[in-house]
């Protein structure tokens, strides 16, 4: 039963390799872009605001850069933890507890992410 599958796998693998070879220059350009410039501030702002809008506890109309998670958006400390965790996932970074506690508004989050060079 499994032996019958084997030729199929090798064909698939060959296809994979064929595909991988021309992809190499693309990977190189990508690395260069990543090293030279950080993220565009506007893009960070939009992504952070979108995360907030995605929370079902948050009133979409109240979302703004200056909005404080607690005072303006009505999020408690546990919700704020979830917001910061969502930001971590969005930008593929890990935010240490100490820094996470200081992020209390969208503007704080944007500021923090823009300082992290490994964010993408």
């Amino acid at each position: 039963m499994f032996r019958a599958l084997r030729p199929a796998t090798s064909v698939y693998r060959a296809a994979l390799y064929k595909h991988a070879a021309p992809a190499r220059p693309v990977a190189l350009t990508f690395a260069r872009m990543y090293a030279s410039s950080g993220l565009d501030r506007n893009a960070i702002e939009n992504r952070v605001l979108d995360i907030l809008k995605g929370f079902n506890k948050v009133d979409v109309n109240k979302v703004s850069l200056k909005a404080n998670f607690n005072k303006d958006l009505g999020l408690d400390s546990l919700d704020a933890v979830e917001v910061v965790m969502a930001i971590e996932e969005e930008f593929s970074i890990e935010i240490p507890d100490k820094d996470a506690d200081e992020i209390k508004s969208a503007a704080d989050a944007v500021e923090y992410v823009s300082k992290r060079e490994d964010a993408h």
Binding site: S77, L78, V81, E82, M85, D97, A100, D101, E102, K104
Partner: peptide
């Protein structure tokens, strides 16, 4: 900075660790 009691801080850390 927000003043939080040690316990409150611990709860928040635990919440984060859980996620």
């Amino acid at each position: 900075p927000v003043r939080r009691s040690g316990l409150q801080q611990e709860i928040i850390s635990l919440y984060r660790a859980c996620f």
